[in-house]
Amino acid sequence: MATNPPEPIRVWLTPPGPNSWKVIFLLEELGLNYVIKSFSFENVKKKPFTDINPNGRVPAIEDPNTDLTLWESGAIYQYLIKTYDTKRQLSHDAHKERHLESQWLHFQMSGQGPYYGQCGWFQHLHAEKIQSAIGRYANEIKRVISVLEGVLAAKDADKQWLVGDKMTYADMAFVPWNFRLAEVLNQSWDEVWDGAPRVRAWHEGMVGLPSWKRSMEIRARLMDEQGLQWNGVPKGVETFDQYEKDIAARAAAGEKK
């Protein structure tokens, strides 16, 4: 088992977006002691959260056991693995594998996350449909999936993982965005994986894990707590643009007081 911290690790998150669930998935898979500080998206760019993350983005963690505050899900991943995955359940000891795990995590952070995020934005959250922008990001997503498909195709059937012969944190990092792929691309689940059977099997294997299922149950509960629809917009508000305008208007009204 992993080394369990005596004091719970505090995870700051707003429930809708995928990145926080990346961290919860890892904490659940390692069975670590943690608590969630769930707050409203309206407050990400405000104190007290900006004292924790000056960049105003979730997730962020505070680990009282080491007195460390950290943000950026990729940096949090590597920290949790080094500190608590002492039995190497989700990582390798050997230097070579360690560098390769890091490489794929960076690819996820810089190649998957931003483009899925931008595609989702232009697809659903932006009021006006700009086809060329949606197309740009949809193509990039298909390209990223084909890169992964090629890598898995070159590996033995019993080693369908990015690094070595077992699931590592590098594989897990891709799950939260791929989980939302149908929504991001606005396609059916079968269309989404067209031409990428190995990536599909890899992904579906991971979302079948109890740790992922628990993570999504927690998400559903926290979304409900805040009265949010699937896309993160409060029930009763039509679009994300409108939601952002409402937030800005409330902020302006507050300043005047």
Binding site: L70, E72, S73, A75, H106, G113, P114
Partner: peptide, 24 residues
């Protein structure tokens, strides 16, 4: 040094650049 507080803070900004500044 790997595992020091500063190591993690460097990593923090490294990922910030990779996932934020670069793509945006």
């Amino acid at each position: 040094p790997y595992g020091s507080r500063e190591y993690w803070e460097v990593n923090n900004w490294l990922f910030w650049q990779m996932g934020g500044l670069g793509p945006m």
